[in-house]
Amino acid sequence: MPATKTRQALKVWGSWKGELPLQNLYTAGIAGNEFFRVLKERGELLGAFCQQCEYGYVPARSFCERCFADLSGTFKTVSSEGVLLAWTQCHRDRTGKTLKKPVWLGAVRLQGSSSALIHILKVPPQELHAGRFVRAIFKPAAQRVGSILDLSHFE
């Protein structure tokens, strides 16, 4: 059966059901590949730095979106510690189902970078406040595969 599967008979007015049978395969890209290689092999976070704009991007990018400079020669690792800029407590998953236990997500600006990285937070809820320091916890080397989840969470 091709793109459309039919599931119901029609009356004069009705609806016709189908789907778009898509999957996506994304490459990490030139900068992304370096970021994930360093994350997997060394358990560290790689950034890119634009001198002209005085801006540090984490994850690393291959160009500065502000001035269009080539940043490929500027990659270096950043501290795994940073400042929590904002946080949220999620009660639903991305399909809208209620989670058994809520999940906390935070926007973290790592020391030495200018951008925020979004990731899972494991901080006691009563201690959550913007401006507090958090630290990245990485999975053990043997479990790292080159995914953003190689960074397990911030605590």
Binding site: L10, W13, W16, K17, G18, Q23, N24, L25, T27
Partner: peptide, 18 residues
């Protein structure tokens, strides 16, 4: 080379109209 895959749940019910 690192790659990532995803599958959007792109299901629809289209009204036939009159």
């Amino acid at each position: 080379v690192f790659t990532f895959s995803d599958r959007p749940q792109a299901r629809y019910a289209w009204d036939t109209g009159e």
